[in-house]
Design a binder for these strands. Structure first.
Length: 279
DNA sequence: AAACCGGGGAC
DNA sequence: GTCCCAGGTTT
């Protein structure tokens, strides 16, 4: 994969997001808010929070009720409480400075694998392995030639993606994430104007030529609950191991066949766009 | 691995 | 109702 193509695209097309020019605390607040929440909805709330609580200690002094209220309609309000809790720990144990060490970051409530790597990269310019949904989808398509990544990253995926990181790893993380968010999107990717079209494995593998092809693969990208139902059916009724199901994940023709069998046996139902278990 | 999170919003 | 969204934690 030609990293320069994405890096140059990023230079020309990146959005001017406020958390790209702020303090480590500002980055951390943005990462909490952006967990499962679109950028556009986060923007106004982030501005308000940084103006009101410019450092961890400021937030730590706030009441829970106020924290929840000011979370607005971002959703998953438990994130606000975890951020509040993390702020308290940072003020008390880290002299009010967001830690730059991956292990320290990971120990904070609400900071998982992704968020720790993202803060280290975007707040401290470290070359960490950042794998969010946008980056994973981009690599799944260009490198693996499939429309969607697996539900969660495997060890082999981590290793292969780590090998791609160029000298400026922080810029690489931001660039690939932005590319996945603006060009290689989940629903209607802008393949016509994509600078990676010539080397895209998904395109070489056939790309979505028709609705029927798309539908046969659609379940792979459906939500976790729906995937869980199908995986459970495949495992229990077809005596498949988890490993076998994972292998099928990347082979749409076998997935299609397996799904047809499940439907024929009445084990699952389809509405054309998704799947469910019969009552 | 799957459910759940004091979800929310576009469609 | 379905799907998406810069995920994390718990069982």
């Amino acid at each position: 994969m030609r990293q320069e193509i994405v890096l140059e695209w990023f230079d020309q097309n990146k959005r001017d997001l406020p958390w790209r020019r702020t303090t480590p605390w500002g980055v951390m607040v943005s990462e909490f808010m952006l967990q499962q929440t679109p950028v556009q909805r986060v923007l106004p709330v982030w501005e308000k929070w940084l103006a009101k609580w410019p450092t961890p200690r400021d937030l730590a002094k706030a009441k829970r009720s106020e924290v929840i209220t000011d979370w607005g309609r971002l959703g998953y309000p438990r994130r606000a409480l975890r951020l509040h809790e993390s702020a308290t720990i940072i003020a008390r144990d880290y002299k009010n400075a967001v830690p730059n060490d991956l292990t320290d970051l990971r120990s904070l409530p609400g900071v998982g694998e992704y968020t720790a790597a993202a803060i280290a990269a975007f707040a401290f310019n470290q070359s960490t392995l950042v794998l969010d949904v946008n980056i994973r989808r981009l690599f799944a398509r260009v490198i693996d030639g499939v429309e969607f990544p697996t539900p969660s990253p495997s060890q082999i995926e981590r290793r292969l993606r780590a090998e791609l990181i160029p000298a400026d790893g922080a810029k690489w993380a931001a660039a690939t994430m932005e590319f996945g968010a603006l060009v290689c999107t989940s629903k209607n990717p802008d393949c016509a104007d994509c600078p990676l079209k010539r080397q895209c494995g998904w395109r070489k593998a056939g790309y979505p030529k028709s609705e029927s092809v798309r539908n046969s693969q659609a379940w792979v990208g459906t939500d976790r609950q729906c995937r869980g139902v199908i995986v459970q059916a495949l495992r229990e009724e077809k005596k498949m191991t988890t490993r076998r199901v994972q292998e099928l994940w990347h082979d749409s023709s076998q997935v299609e066949q397996a799904l047809k069998t499940l439907i024929a046996d009445g084990l699952i139902e389809t509405t054309g766009k998704s799947f469910r278990l019969p009552n």
